[in-house]
Design a protein around this nucleic acid. Structure first.
Lengths: 225, 225
DNA sequence: CCGGCGTTTAAGAAATGCTTAAGAAGTGCC
DNA sequence: GGCACTTCTTAAGCATTTCTTAAACGCCGG
């Protein structure tokens, strides 16, 4: 893995043996910056950009709790994990309430620490807001609206939206009335319902969007030419 | 603490004894909704708005890991804490990598659990100006008032404020009645409650602020101008 | 020019939303 | 605790929107 690809991690650990050990352990996954006291931790925390910060509880110059509180009070929102030998429930409560996001006690399992760090740095990008382009129009199914590229927005009814979405799902394909009917309307409906809704859509949006294929059905986009 | 102020928490726990016990434990701090299998957990997780979700590993119908994966795949970014008896490091890694944010093993310390939940629900957004603009109105959630740009101030009741804040939190998003219901009203309430409060808000503020999306729900802002 | 096919219109049926009012529940004060 | 007041919840009737049907009209191809 190239150096550039790894997220940066600030490790604040004063133990001369454990510090480098942990740094080495995390090295495959993170670009680790090791500092050995609270003051340096504060400085790096405030000035650098870190994916996550790992802090020991007992630190010289500035205690871990104080360090976290200082960072948080300055508006630093970076995820912080406390890694320490102090494992009392009360200690954990104090650490977490000071602003830490997770608390792991020594001795720790390397795999668990890695997983917890992944959990802290993970970001959930919600699946792209389903948006479909139809000519000059953009369909927003969840909101059931269609917006033209010029800003005008039209709201559709449920059936209108379903019909348009169905057609837009496979541009250039010709859908028969029966196909559209069974998929998006009541089975008992007459095929003529489709015609009516096509008309509604054409009136609301623009005539050119839905093309009629005589004797077959309807089609969107990618016509002729 | 008034009922209205607590954040909502979804608890998925199948143990008939432990479930209600944990629910009671968390009750002072959260409005807890307890469901006892993965399918119900998925439904509530997808349709409701939760501050945090607590999930047991071993669940009937749908495993806890599968539940988390399903929620994450749907774009649900709500913090999730796994609370289970399975404490192997490997189990923890699997749970966290599935998308959980924290992992607590039974038996657990009540104080630690509470602190970890606080850490998950905490937001570090720098001293957020608790003010939300909604069209010509400015919502002050803590004070539960709404002031028009022309100086007129209207005070809202708790439910009115919650409803307006919920809608304003994600402008342009369409909220279903069920979403609003599970998040801010009693589970036993009829969906019609929402209609009533929307009516109250419209009368107090202005008709145009909350838009009805027929067949779906309600929405604020970003309507077609 | 004729017959099918597609379009447009209108109107009743069904579904959904709005409004109102009144009882229940909660809250604060004496 | 009891009382007055506010807030919450329910439910029912009315209003509106959406859905579906159907019939009149126009267009295209043979």
């Amino acid at each position: 893995m190239t150096t550039a690809d790894r997220p940066s991690l600030l490790l604040v650990e004063d133990d001369a043996v454990l510090g480098p050990l942990i740094a080495e352990l995390l090295d495959p996954d993170y670009r680790v910056q090791l500092v050995t006291n609270g003051r340096d931790g504060l400085h790096h925390g405030l000035t650098g950009t870190w994916a996550v910060i790992v802090i020991d509880r007992g630190l010289p110059v500035m205690d871990g709790i104080a360090l976290i509180a200082a960072l948080r009070s300055k508006g630093i929102a970076t995820p912080i994990l406390i890694l320490t030998a102090l494992g009392d429930a009360d200690e954990k409560v104090r650490g977490l309430d000071a602003g830490a996001n997770d608390y792991v006690t020594k001795p720790f399992d390397a795999g668990e620490l890695a997983a917890r760090l992944r959990a802290l740095t993970r970001t959930f990008t919600s699946p792209a807001p389903a948006r479909v382009m139809i000519g000059d129009w953009e369909l927003n199914p969840t909101q059931r609206t269609v917006r033209s590229v010029y800003g005008q927005t039209v709201s559709l009814t449920a059936k209108e939206g379903q019909l348009l979405a169905a057609l837009a799902a496979e541009p250039a394909r010709v859908f028969t009335r029966d196909e559209l009917l069974t998929a998006y309307f009541h089975a008992s409906d007459q095929p003529g319902v489709i015609d009516t809704y096509v008309h509604h859509l054409r009136r609301k949006i623009s005539k050119a969007v839905i093309r009629t294929v005589h004797g077959l059905g309807y089609q969107i986009g990618d016509a002729h030419e």
